[in-house]
Simulated assay, not measured.
Amino acid sequence: MLLNSKKVAIIGAGPVGLTMAKLIQQNGVDVTVYERDENAHARVWGGPLDLHKGTGQEAMKKAGLMEQYFTLGIPMGRTITNEHADILFSVDTQYDTPEINRNDLRTILLNSLTKDSIAWNRKCTGLSVSDGKWLLHFENHPDAVADVVIGANGGMSAVRKYVTDAQVEYTGSFIIQGEVPQPKTNCPEFFSLCNGNILMASKNGITFTANPKNNGALMYGISFRKTEDWTCLNYTDANDIANRLCNLFAEWHEVYKHLFKATTTFAGLPARKISLDLPWKENRPLPITLIGDAAHIMPPFAGQGVNTGMRDALILCSNLTNEEFENIESAIADYEHQMFTYAREAQQATAINEIAMHRPEFSFQERFGS
């Protein structure tokens, strides 16, 4: 096997990095994941994920973790409302793609790895080469050594520059995420309106989605075309953000405004992408590549991000362990050739949705039908 007697370093313990670690570790590969979070108990921010058949679910199946995913995942339908909080229609529960909390997914993957596979509190600041090995540099920690580096540390990856000169681009949309703990108590009217489903509403180019079952909290997201006054606000000031959202939603029913007032945590996120139009560097000093958001970050408007990343892990692991390639570099090159095709398609689908969802006349009825 190409990775016999080789040390693999994966930068980033998100779902894609951990999936990659599991897949190659079960093939006997020596792998360490370096993660900037302080420990395994650090809370992962963000809404639940649904893993798609053929990509995310296929990766979990290959890792032997499908049963655990379906045990912890929650099948959720869709409740479509308008700005007046009228329920327009509901879509049946989607049992084939249950929503799973990000922390639950991380726990499943972490528990599947051998002890000491993760080096916590390691913020990677850069790489260098010494004596035919990669040296990984960390903030306030000693260097580590590896033969192969896989960057899986998200859209702002510090190792991307060793693979590509492509830069993060803003797509023109802005996302505000909010969280309400104990929603049945803190926003009972809105919680009841959800009726156990993911709630969706849209008006004048603003799209709103809420999931009432995110490990005891209600998580929601609001997206619209970006304006400068939203990009530089202090999102730790929950009162101020709630008031601004109430103004933005002035024509909406009071139940939405009550939700904003009950929100304890906000985050403002410019929608980002990395173009795959620029060829990646060919003359890398040692084997290195990117997977997941580090390779092809895209906004969440088509639900493709984590699933595309898990597809990366499936293909890259197969190439590195299936004995079909002469060397590690050719195995990586073949993975990247495939990835460029399907990741571009995922980005294109996302861009089409992003434009459509922020048209003034858009309604979720277009997508789901009544």
Rank of each mutant, 00 (worst) to 15 (best):
M1A: 13
N4L: 13
K7Q: 12
K7A: 09
G14V: 08
K22T: 06
I24M: 00
I24R: 00
Q25G: 09
V29K: 01
V33E: 04
W45H: 13
G47M: 11
T55E: 14
E58C: 06
A59R: 02
A59D: 03
G64Y: 00
M76Y: 00
R78T: 08
D86E: 15
L88M: 12
F89T: 15
E99C: 03
I100P: 00
R102T: 03
L109G: 03
L113Y: 05
S117V: 01
I118N: 06
A119N: 05
N121E: 04
W134Y: 09
H141Y: 09
D143S: 10
D143W: 04
V145K: 05
V145C: 01
V149S: 01
A152R: 07
R160A: 08
V163T: 12
Y170Q: 13
G172V: 02
G178E: 01
P181H: 08
K184I: 07
T185F: 12
N197I: 01
T209W: 10
A210E: 10
K213D: 15
K213F: 15
K213N: 15
F224V: 02
E228K: 14
A242V: 06
N247P: 02
W252R: 05
Y256E: 02
K257H: 14
L259E: 10
A262W: 07
T264G: 07
G268H: 11
R272H: 11
K273L: 10
S275R: 05
E282C: 05
L286Q: 08
L286Y: 08
G292Y: 11
H296Y: 07
M298P: 05
P299D: 01
P300L: 10
A302R: 09
N307P: 00
N307Y: 03
T308H: 00
D312V: 03
D312N: 09
C317Q: 14
E326Y: 13
A333D: 15
D334S: 14
E336N: 07
H337N: 12
T350E: 11
I352D: 14
M357D: 08
R359P: 01
P360K: 04
G369T: 09
